[in-house]
């Protein structure tokens, strides 16, 4: 405990940056969100020392749930080493002094942007999403007064109009990310821009919290909650991914990033979840272009 308190005084910030009153306010919003799965709870979002769009909502939610004993992991598009992930991880290292990790299984709080980790999460973990636009109906119905009414009265026909338009224009449901889901048979929710490949994973053991800083909304999915992706009877929902195996670790079932490797059309597919990929390579799995356990495999 003492070294944690040391970290506090070092930085002249309250533990995890936010003052206790703010955290209390956010926790109340979180509890309400958990009580009504999928319902967007308004909260008084604070200015954070980073721009909107960088995860101000997620950071506030993380700050409100962190305890000094937590071990935190931050991912951005599945990766631990991109700008957004690194800066947010550093932010909490400095302002909260918590331990951080890149191992999904070892983390207790995971803040994520646009991915759910491949490793199955457990009841001891909290997954915090950064949400740019919490309102799934926004681009169909721009009036917030109207969309709130539609949520309240469960009028979700419009959401299917979007899917109808997809099929009419592309021949299949072309929405590949931020794919709308219905939570526990009631609220239609934007799962944040995760690929639809991740949608089935949302029925998980961990607590899922969603924070949208600019839009000032918090919502949540409690553990083991039913999360159904919307679809048509004759065009059922399909979680899709690139039809390849990871070129580094050979995984067949993970979500892949396509990487252009030269200007002659060369490309490779790698796991977007870096921790998953590293763990597999350390375990001796090798892909088409990979070498086991080395850093610069390609």
């Amino acid at each position: 405990m003492t070294d944690k308190n040391q970290a506090m005084t070092d930085t002249h910030y309250n533990f995890a940056y936010l003052d206790e009153q703010t955290k209390r306010m956010i926790r109340r919003a979180l509890l309400k969100g958990l009580a009504i799965p999928g319902y967007q709870v308004p909260f008084a979002s604070r200015e954070m020392p980073m721009p909107y769009g960088w995860g101000t909502g997620g950071v506030q939610v993380s700050a409100a749930v962190l305890t000094p004993e937590d071990r935190m992991k931050v991912i951005d598009q599945g990766a631990d080493d991109t700008t957004n992930a690194v800066s947010i991880r550093k932010f909490f290292e400095r302002t909260a002094g918590v331990d951080t990790t890149e191992r999904t299984a070892e983390a207790t709080v995971i803040q994520t942007r646009h991915r759910i980790p491949e490793t199955e999460l457990t009841e001891d973990q909290i997954l915090v999403y950064q949400v740019p636009i919490p309102e799934p109906l926004r681009f169909l119905e721009p009036r917030e007064t109207e969309t709130r009414k539609m949520h309240a009265l469960e009028e979700y026909g419009l959401m299917h109009v979007k899917l109808y338009e997809d099929i009419a224009r592309h021949g299949n449901i072309a929405t590949a990310y931020a794919y709308p889901v219905k939570v526990e048979g009631r609220y239609v929710m934007d799962p944040s821009p995760i690929p639809k490949f991740d949608n089935p994973k949302m029925e998980m053991a961990a607590i899922q919290l969603f924070g949208a800083g600019r839009e000032q909304r918090i919502y949540a999915v409690p553990p083991y909650t039913r999360v159904v992706s919307l679809d048509f009877e004759d065009y059922p929902f399909e979680p899709s991914k690139a039809d390849h195996a990871c070129d580094l670790c050979g995984a067949q079932n993970s979500y892949l990033d396509e990487v252009i490797v030269d200007d002659a059309g060369g490309r490779m597919f790698v796991c977007s979840d870096t921790d998953f990929c590293t763990t597999r390579r350390d375990g001796g799995h090798v892909g088409r272009l990979g070498a086991p356990g080395t850093e610069d495999a390609a």
């Binding site: 169909l140 026909g157 109009v161 109808y164 009419a168 048509f232 009877e233 004759d234």
Partner: peptide, 27 residues
């Protein structure tokens, strides 16, 4: 009308609003 949605989508909206979930039928 919804100006950003195709003619078919415009007509289909009311059907979907009352629970139609079969694309072929709606179309």
């Amino acid at each position: 009308l919804r100006m950003g949605v195709s003619a078919g989508g415009n007509v289909g909206e009311r059907l979907m609003a009352v629970g139609a979930r079969h694309y072929g039928d709606i179309r």
